[in-house]
Protein backbone atom coordinates (compact mmCIF):
# COMPACT_ATOMS: atom_id res chain seq x y z
CA UNK A 1 0.00 0.00 0.00
CA UNK A 2 1.45 3.31 -1.05
CA UNK A 3 1.51 6.36 1.13
CA UNK A 4 -0.44 8.41 -1.41
CA UNK A 5 -4.11 8.00 -2.31
CA UNK A 6 -3.58 10.18 -5.37
CA UNK A 7 -0.24 10.66 -7.08
CA UNK A 8 -0.33 12.75 -10.25
CA UNK A 9 2.88 13.28 -12.17
CA UNK A 10 3.14 15.84 -14.93
CA UNK A 11 -0.54 15.63 -16.01
CA UNK A 12 -1.37 17.44 -19.26
CA UNK A 13 -4.72 17.86 -20.98
CA UNK A 14 -5.72 19.67 -24.12
CA UNK A 15 -9.12 20.58 -25.58
CA UNK A 16 -8.45 21.27 -29.24
CA UNK A 17 -5.79 23.96 -29.19
CA UNK A 18 -6.37 25.00 -25.60
CA UNK A 19 -3.97 23.57 -23.05
CA UNK A 20 -6.02 23.20 -19.88
CA UNK A 21 -3.41 21.39 -17.81
CA UNK A 22 0.30 21.90 -18.49
CA UNK A 23 2.14 19.31 -16.45
CA UNK A 24 0.52 19.29 -13.02
CA UNK A 25 1.92 17.41 -10.03
CA UNK A 26 -0.36 16.60 -7.14
CA UNK A 27 0.07 14.27 -4.18
CA UNK A 28 -2.66 13.47 -1.72
CA UNK A 29 -1.92 11.37 1.36
CA UNK A 30 -4.47 8.96 2.80
CA UNK A 31 -6.91 10.63 5.17
CA UNK A 32 -5.88 14.11 4.08
CA UNK A 33 -8.03 16.96 2.81
CA UNK A 34 -6.67 18.79 -0.22
CA UNK A 35 -8.20 21.99 -1.55
CA UNK A 36 -7.71 23.19 -5.12
CA UNK A 37 -8.19 26.91 -5.54
CA UNK A 38 -7.73 29.25 -8.46
CA UNK A 39 -9.58 31.44 -10.96
CA UNK A 40 -12.17 29.89 -13.28
CA UNK A 41 -10.60 28.27 -16.32
CA UNK A 42 -7.44 27.46 -14.40
CA UNK A 43 -7.96 23.69 -14.82
CA UNK A 44 -9.07 22.77 -11.27
CA UNK A 45 -12.21 20.94 -12.34
CA UNK A 46 -10.45 19.23 -15.24
CA UNK A 47 -7.77 17.91 -12.90
CA UNK A 48 -10.47 16.61 -10.55
CA UNK A 49 -12.33 14.93 -13.41
CA UNK A 50 -9.13 13.26 -14.62
CA UNK A 51 -8.76 11.56 -11.24
CA UNK A 52 -11.92 9.45 -11.75
CA UNK A 53 -11.35 9.28 -15.50
CA UNK A 54 -14.40 11.36 -16.43
CA UNK A 55 -11.80 13.07 -18.62
CA UNK A 56 -8.84 11.32 -20.21
CA UNK A 57 -5.52 13.00 -19.54
CA UNK A 58 -3.25 13.29 -22.58
CA UNK A 59 0.11 12.93 -20.89
CA UNK A 60 1.62 12.16 -17.50
CA UNK A 61 1.06 9.42 -14.97
CA UNK A 62 -1.88 9.37 -12.63
CA UNK A 63 -2.07 6.85 -9.81
CA UNK A 64 -5.05 6.38 -7.52
CA UNK A 65 -4.47 4.03 -4.59
CA UNK A 66 -1.28 2.83 -6.26
CA UNK A 67 -2.99 1.92 -9.53
CA UNK A 68 -2.66 3.66 -12.87
CA UNK A 69 -5.90 5.42 -13.84
CA UNK A 70 -7.40 4.18 -17.12
CA UNK A 71 -4.40 2.13 -18.19
CA UNK A 72 -2.47 -0.97 -17.32
CA UNK A 73 1.31 -1.15 -17.65
CA UNK A 74 2.45 -4.44 -19.15
CA UNK A 75 5.66 -5.24 -21.06
CA UNK A 76 6.51 -1.56 -21.28
CA UNK A 77 3.19 -0.81 -22.99
CA UNK A 78 0.18 1.07 -21.66
CA UNK A 79 -2.96 -0.94 -22.32
CA UNK A 80 -6.20 1.01 -22.16
CA UNK A 81 -8.43 -0.60 -19.57
CA UNK A 82 -11.76 -2.13 -20.52
CA UNK A 83 -14.79 0.02 -19.75
CA UNK A 84 -16.11 -2.32 -17.04
CA UNK A 85 -12.77 -2.11 -15.21
CA UNK A 86 -12.91 1.67 -15.41
CA UNK A 87 -16.51 1.60 -14.09
CA UNK A 88 -15.36 -0.60 -11.22
CA UNK A 89 -12.59 1.83 -10.20
CA UNK A 90 -14.90 4.84 -10.61
CA UNK A 91 -17.39 3.27 -8.23
CA UNK A 92 -14.72 3.40 -5.51
CA UNK A 93 -14.34 7.17 -5.88
CA UNK A 94 -17.19 9.42 -4.77
CA UNK A 95 -17.91 12.62 -6.65
CA UNK A 96 -20.03 15.64 -5.72
CA UNK A 97 -20.93 18.17 -8.41
CA UNK A 98 -21.49 21.91 -8.44
CA UNK A 99 -25.04 21.46 -9.83
CA UNK A 100 -25.83 18.48 -7.51
CA UNK A 101 -26.91 16.29 -10.47
CA UNK A 102 -29.35 14.25 -8.40
CA UNK A 103 -31.43 11.88 -10.52
CA UNK A 104 -34.55 13.96 -11.03
CA UNK A 105 -36.91 11.02 -11.61
CA UNK A 106 -35.97 9.20 -8.39
CA UNK A 107 -36.87 9.88 -4.77
CA UNK A 108 -34.14 10.88 -2.32
CA UNK A 109 -33.92 7.30 -1.02
CA UNK A 110 -33.72 5.80 -4.53
CA UNK A 111 -31.03 8.32 -5.48
CA UNK A 112 -28.87 6.95 -2.67
CA UNK A 113 -29.66 3.25 -3.15
CA UNK A 114 -29.41 3.05 -6.95
CA UNK A 115 -25.61 2.83 -6.97
CA UNK A 116 -25.49 0.27 -4.17
CA UNK A 117 -28.16 -1.92 -5.82
CA UNK A 118 -27.27 -1.62 -9.50
CA UNK A 119 -23.48 -1.23 -9.37
CA UNK A 120 -22.57 -3.11 -6.17
CA UNK A 121 -25.40 -5.65 -6.27
CA UNK A 122 -26.43 -5.06 -2.66
CA UNK A 123 -29.94 -6.27 -1.71
CA UNK A 124 -32.55 -3.50 -1.87
CA UNK A 125 -33.58 -3.70 1.82
CA UNK A 126 -29.97 -3.61 3.03
CA UNK A 127 -29.29 -0.66 0.74
CA UNK A 128 -32.38 1.20 1.98
CA UNK A 129 -31.31 0.70 5.58
CA UNK A 130 -27.84 2.06 4.84
CA UNK A 131 -29.35 4.96 2.89
CA UNK A 132 -31.52 5.92 5.89
CA UNK A 133 -28.45 5.85 8.10
CA UNK A 134 -26.64 8.19 5.70
CA UNK A 135 -29.65 10.51 5.53
CA UNK A 136 -29.54 10.76 9.34
CA UNK A 137 -25.84 11.55 9.06
CA UNK A 138 -26.50 14.50 6.69
CA UNK A 139 -29.56 15.55 8.72
CA UNK A 140 -32.29 14.72 6.20
CA UNK A 141 -33.91 11.64 7.75
CA UNK A 142 -37.46 12.89 7.04
CA UNK A 143 -36.93 13.59 3.33
CA UNK A 144 -36.48 10.09 1.93
CA UNK A 145 -39.74 10.08 -0.03
CA UNK A 146 -39.24 13.54 -1.57
CA UNK A 147 -38.10 14.20 -5.11
CA UNK A 148 -34.99 16.37 -5.60
CA UNK A 149 -37.06 19.24 -7.05
CA UNK A 150 -38.86 19.49 -3.70
CA UNK A 151 -35.63 20.18 -1.80
CA UNK A 152 -33.57 23.33 -1.35
CA UNK A 153 -30.16 23.52 -2.98
CA UNK A 154 -28.38 22.82 0.29
CA UNK A 155 -30.56 19.79 0.98
CA UNK A 156 -29.99 18.50 -2.56
CA UNK A 157 -26.24 18.80 -2.14
CA UNK A 158 -26.36 16.94 1.17
CA UNK A 159 -28.31 14.13 -0.55
CA UNK A 160 -25.66 14.13 -3.29
CA UNK A 161 -22.96 13.68 -0.64
CA UNK A 162 -24.96 10.83 0.92
CA UNK A 163 -25.33 9.25 -2.53
CA UNK A 164 -21.56 9.32 -3.02
CA UNK A 165 -20.88 8.00 0.50
CA UNK A 166 -23.28 5.09 -0.06
CA UNK A 167 -20.67 3.50 -2.32
CA UNK A 168 -18.20 3.50 0.61
CA UNK A 169 -15.59 5.36 -1.43
CA UNK A 170 -11.92 5.45 -0.55
CA UNK A 171 -11.68 8.96 -1.96
CA UNK A 172 -14.17 11.81 -2.30
CA UNK A 173 -13.97 14.47 -5.01
CA UNK A 174 -15.90 17.74 -4.60
CA UNK A 175 -16.28 20.01 -7.63
CA UNK A 176 -17.21 23.47 -6.27
CA UNK A 177 -19.91 21.92 -4.05
CA UNK A 178 -21.20 25.23 -2.70
CA UNK A 179 -20.87 27.51 -5.74
CA UNK A 180 -24.47 27.03 -6.89
CA UNK A 181 -25.96 27.62 -3.43
CA UNK A 182 -27.61 30.66 -1.91
CA UNK A 183 -25.24 32.17 0.67
CA UNK A 184 -27.35 31.12 3.66
CA UNK A 185 -27.29 27.46 2.51
CA UNK A 186 -23.52 27.17 2.13
CA UNK A 187 -22.94 26.53 5.82
CA UNK A 188 -25.04 23.36 6.09
CA UNK A 189 -23.11 21.72 3.23
CA UNK A 190 -19.71 22.79 4.59
CA UNK A 191 -20.67 21.36 8.00
CA UNK A 192 -21.36 17.96 6.47
CA UNK A 193 -18.02 18.15 4.64
CA UNK A 194 -16.17 19.08 7.85
CA UNK A 195 -17.71 16.07 9.62
CA UNK A 196 -16.58 13.90 6.77
CA UNK A 197 -13.05 15.29 6.92
CA UNK A 198 -12.93 14.67 10.67
CA UNK A 199 -13.99 11.05 10.12
CA UNK A 200 -10.75 10.51 8.21
CA UNK A 201 -12.04 10.52 4.62
CA UNK A 202 -9.50 11.40 1.93
CA UNK A 203 -10.96 14.41 0.13
CA UNK A 204 -10.03 16.63 -2.81
CA UNK A 205 -12.12 19.78 -2.87
CA UNK A 206 -12.25 22.37 -5.64
CA UNK A 207 -13.58 25.42 -3.85
CA UNK A 208 -13.85 29.17 -3.58
CA UNK A 209 -14.53 28.93 0.18
CA UNK A 210 -11.23 30.18 1.55
CA UNK A 211 -12.50 29.89 5.14
CA UNK A 212 -13.18 26.19 4.63
CA UNK A 213 -9.78 25.68 2.99
CA UNK A 214 -7.99 27.38 5.88
CA UNK A 215 -9.91 25.49 8.55
CA UNK A 216 -10.14 21.98 7.11
CA UNK A 217 -7.48 21.50 4.43
CA UNK A 218 -4.15 19.81 5.10
CA UNK A 219 -2.75 21.09 1.82
CA UNK A 220 -3.86 23.82 -0.55
CA UNK A 221 -2.93 23.94 -4.24
CA UNK A 222 -3.29 27.17 -6.22
CA UNK A 223 -3.79 26.56 -9.96
CA UNK A 224 -3.52 29.25 -12.59
CA UNK A 225 -3.56 28.76 -16.37
CA UNK A 226 -3.05 25.02 -16.09
CA UNK A 227 -0.04 25.22 -13.78
CA UNK A 228 0.31 24.81 -10.03
CA UNK A 229 1.61 28.19 -8.94
CA UNK A 230 1.86 27.52 -5.26
CA UNK A 231 1.04 24.77 -2.81
CA UNK A 232 1.51 23.85 0.81
CA UNK A 233 0.10 24.44 4.26
CA UNK A 234 -3.15 26.48 4.04
CA UNK A 235 -2.04 29.01 6.69
CA UNK A 236 1.12 29.75 4.79
CA UNK A 237 -0.40 29.69 1.27
CA UNK A 238 -3.48 31.74 2.13
CA UNK A 239 -2.00 34.28 4.56
CA UNK A 240 1.44 34.88 3.13
CA UNK A 241 1.29 34.11 -0.60
CA UNK A 242 4.58 34.34 -2.44
CA UNK A 243 3.50 34.65 -6.08
CA UNK A 244 1.94 37.83 -7.47
CA UNK A 245 -0.83 35.81 -9.13
CA UNK A 246 -1.96 34.24 -5.87
CA UNK A 247 -1.82 37.64 -4.17
CA UNK A 248 -4.00 39.05 -6.94
CA UNK A 249 -6.43 36.12 -6.75
CA UNK A 250 -6.76 36.27 -2.98
CA UNK A 251 -7.37 40.00 -3.02
CA UNK A 252 -10.34 39.35 -5.30
CA UNK A 253 -11.98 36.46 -3.43
CA UNK A 254 -11.39 37.44 0.19
Amino acid sequence: MTEFMVDAKNIAKQYGNIEVLKGVNLQVKRGEVTCLIGPSGSGKSTLLRCINHLEKHDAGELFVDGELVGYQLKDNKLYERKSNEICQSRSEIGMVFQRFNLFAHLTVLDNITIGMVKVRGIAAEVAAERARELLRRVGLENKEKNYPSQLSGGQQQRVAIARALAMEPKLMLFDEPTSALDPELVGEVLDVMKDLANSGMTMIVVTHEMGFAREVADTVYFLDQGVIEESGDPQQVLTSPRSERLKGFLSKVL
Binding site: L54, S91, G94, M95, F97, F100, I114, M167
Partner: peptide, 14 residues
Protein backbone atom coordinates in the same frame (compact mmCIF):
# COMPACT_ATOMS: atom_id res chain seq x y z
CA UNK B 1 -29.15 17.14 -18.69
CA UNK B 2 -25.51 16.16 -19.27
CA UNK B 3 -24.97 16.30 -15.50
CA UNK B 4 -27.25 13.27 -15.06
CA UNK B 5 -24.96 11.21 -17.26
CA UNK B 6 -21.88 12.44 -15.36
CA UNK B 7 -23.41 11.58 -12.01
CA UNK B 8 -24.34 8.09 -13.21
CA UNK B 9 -20.87 7.58 -14.70
CA UNK B 10 -19.20 8.78 -11.52
CA UNK B 11 -21.22 6.20 -9.54
CA UNK B 12 -19.61 3.52 -11.72
CA UNK B 13 -22.59 2.73 -13.96
CA UNK B 14 -21.86 1.32 -17.40
Amino acid sequence: DEGQVEAATALGMT
